[in-house]
Design a protein around this nucleic acid. Structure first.
Length: 637
RNA sequence: GCCCACAUAGCUCAGGGGUAGAGCACUUCCUUGGUAAGGAAGAGGUCCCGAGUUCAAAUCUCGGUGUGGGCUCCA
């Protein structure tokens, strides 16, 4: 005779054992329809699982976050059932719900084709129409393992055998298909509905290990209703439109070509943005008391052996051998170079902290499959800096770096920034005591700063723990850009010392920091964040002066000269084309400000200003229009 | 690096064992037009590279390179 307490505080008494389905039905028909599972004393249960004791119960509906996750998980099972029906020799492995959808990994010799995806999707819909009952069964581990091995499901058997032998486990059966699963699941396949779509196939390593065999992963998206599905598909289309690789072409910013995979060919427009970013960062660095240096891109390999880079990731370094047999490496980082600068002359504790910054071009031989437009390249520019300081200065310097990073992100329109603390990785240099010390120092600084953070275990740099600054863009994607690392290893390896107050030599602490990370990547993020509509101060072409008739050519040239004198990047378009044609063309190219000039503007010495994204224009006196733009650029809005 | 797919005009793409196609862009001409595509004509290609099969390969096969979607990686 269970007494059921509901989230609204009400209680219901049931005569015999009951179930989530009963409870939902007793509350209302609509709820019964929308219910997909229940939460019983904190655990998720199937709707039809018997409740025999008093419990706190909450109904999970298909529109709730947990409900949708459940639908996605069920979609994965229906996908596996469909594949097994179509190609029984295929082995199933795992299939979880993920953001926006689900996937399932299969082991099968023949690759799945796009046509197969359509066939599978149709079969999935049939399975939904069949409305098969989904039943939960409790099995002993060994029996379950034996069962799956018996039906040729080696991968399933392997997963089950990795579960402790004294633990019972649950299997879920729907139609002819049975799968290992913790659950919960829908009561029947019909409840899934048809707001799902298979999207693509890809490879994935068994158990995520690149030493293992490659499985075939089928991805899909699933939602609680058709409207949500359509909305998501539309969002994907929109995201594609803001792809920096497409916009890079439309805006004529850069290109890549086969001869230089992962290296950018900058066009004048793209280089203008690059230069704007550099000069902005230069200004910020100067304000924060950094000094700019520049160090060689190619240095003897021996130096990289000494620094530990060669051992830790020599595979990712470009090397070169000269005719006289000397081996050099192209720098993958700037730190060893900065230590060489620090090492010149004798440093006193009075010289610390010394903050050396460099816009250093680094090369890393990234795996070919990792390259992705400007987001992941082999040749990139870091806005790098190294702070040489005493142990006592770590905290203040770290806090200053955090504040600097956050203020800069704000200037670029990124307000949603997360900080992660990443500690020692498996492959590393230096003694554990040194790591203890470095991790403690960084964590203390982080605590002192008062910023919220999360822990990212084992993700530190090979020479020290780090803070990762992750920003969220306009369409909700996260990008790790900035980093702050405490390094108690490399200065010693490369012989950096200073004379302390006690007259003895000491090894300085080195803080590594980058704010934008890589200029290339940051620009890619900016382009996608703004969908190409960069703020005026970053736009490569800030103003286009468009003539309406050729009578206005002289006036247009005069305006361009004045705009340029005011420090704005401006050009004119005096082509023999209609004004609407010119407006369209420059709007497509994302020029933020268009000045149209014709007879009326000549007579009144005005311009008709049209801003990107607006359909209206405003006629203004020329000088006022220039002044307004100048103010906007200066304020970096 | 691994799995799958793709590579044809500047761009987006269609086609396909036997003279290479469209739209946009480009050039020239007409048009001087008031805010997202005015009209006409023209030019433009080693169909990614290499080998093989074939009387004949852009097309089929194999190898390579690059790109895309993922996986692994991202110090």
């Amino acid at each position: 005779m269970p007494k059921i307490s509901l989230p609204d505080g009400s209680e219901r008494q049931y005569d015999a054992t009951t179930s989530g389905a009963n409870i939902a039905a007793s509350i209302g028909e609509g709820l019964a329809r929308a219910a997909v599972a229940i939460r019983v004393d904190g655990d998720l249960w199937d709707l039809n699982r018997e409740i025999s004791d008093d419990a706190e119960v909450a109904i999970i509906t298909r529109d709730s976050e947990e409900g949708i996750e459940l639908l996605r998980h069920d979609a994965a099972h229906v996908l596996a059932e469909a594949v097994k029906e179509l190609w029984p020799e295929t082995q199933v492995t795992i299939g979880p719900a993920i953001d926006n959808g689900f996937y399932y990994d299969f082991a099968r010799k023949e690759p799945f084709t796009d046509a197969d995806l359509e066939t599978i999707e149709k079969r999935m819909q049939e399975i939904v129409d069949r409305d098969e009952v989904i039943e939960r069964e409790v099995w002993e581990r060994d029996k379950a393992a034996e069962f799956f091995r018996g039906i040729g499901e080696e991968y399933k058997a392997e997963i089950i055998e990795s579960i402790p032998s004294d633990e019972d486990l649950t299997l879920y059966r729907q139609g002819e298909f049975i799968d290992l699963c913790r659950g919960p699941h829908l009561p029947s396949t019909g409840k899934l509905g048809k707001a799902f779509k298979l999207t693509h196939v890809s490879g994935a390593y068994w158990r995520g290990d690149s030493n293992n065999e490659m499985l075939q992963r089928i991805y899909g998206t699933a939602w609680s209703n058709d409207k949500a599905l359509r909305k998501y598909l539309h969002m994907l289309e929109e995201a594609e439109k803001r792809d920096h690789r497409r916009l890079g072409r439309v805006m004529d910013l850069f290109h890549f070509q086969e001869e230089a995979p992962g290296a950018v060919f900058w066009h004048p427009n793209g280089w203008a943005i690059y230069q704007s970013l550099i000069s902005y960062m230069r200004e910020k660095n100067t304000e924060a008391d950094y000094q700019e240096v520049n160090t060689p891109e190619i240095m003897a390999k021996a130096l990289w052996e000494k620094s530990g880079h060669n051992a830790a990731f020599g595979d990712n370094m470009f090397t070169t051998e000269t005719v006289d047999g000397r081996v050099y490496a192209v720098k993958p980082m700037n730190c060893p170079g900065h230590i060489q600068v620090f090492n010149q002359g004798i440093k006193s504790y009075r010289d610390l902290p010394q903050r050396l910054g460099e816009f250093g071009k680094c090369h890393r031989y990234e795996p070919s499959g990792a390259l992705h437009g400007m987001m992941r390249v082999r040749a990139f520019t870091q806005d790098d800096a190294h702070i040489f300081c005493t142990p006592e200065q770590i905290s203040d310097e770290s806090i200053a770096v955090c504040n600097l990073i956050l203020s800069i992100y704000k200037d670029f329109g990124f307000d949603d920034v997360r900080i992660k603390f990443a500690d020692r990785p498996e492959v590393r240099v230096g003694a554990d005591e040194v790591w203890d010390q470095a991790e403690r120092a960084l964590l203390q600084a982080l605590e002192a700063s008062g910023f919220e953070y999360t822990h990212n275990p084992g993700e530190g740099a090979f020479y020290g723990p780090k803070l990762e600054f992750v920003l969220r863009d306009a369409i909700g994607r996260d990008w790790q850009c900035g980093t702050l690392q405490v390094d108690l290893n490399m200065p010693e390896r490369l012989g950096a010392t200073y004379i302390g107050e006690d007259g003895n030599k000491h090894v300085p602490v080195m803080l590594h920091r980058a704010i934008l990370g890589s200029i290339e990547r940051f620009m890619g993020i900016l382009i996608e964040h703004h969908a190409g509509k960069l703020p005026l101060w970053l736009a490569p072409q800030q103003v286009k002066v468009l003539t309406i008739t050729s009578d206005a050519d002289d006036y247009a040239n005069e305006i361009v000269a004045e705009l340029r004198a005011a420090g704005l990047r401006a050009d004119c378009d005096t082509r023999n084309e209609k004004i609407s044609y010119k407006v369209r063309e420059h709007s497509v190219a994302k020029v933020p400000a268009l000045f149209a000039v014709g007879q009326r503007e000549i007579e009144n010495r005005t311009v008709a200003v049209r801003r990107l994204g607006s359909k209206k224009q405003q006629v203004m006196p020329l000088e006022a229009a220039i002044e307004a733009l100048k103010t906007e650029v200066d304020s970096r809005r």
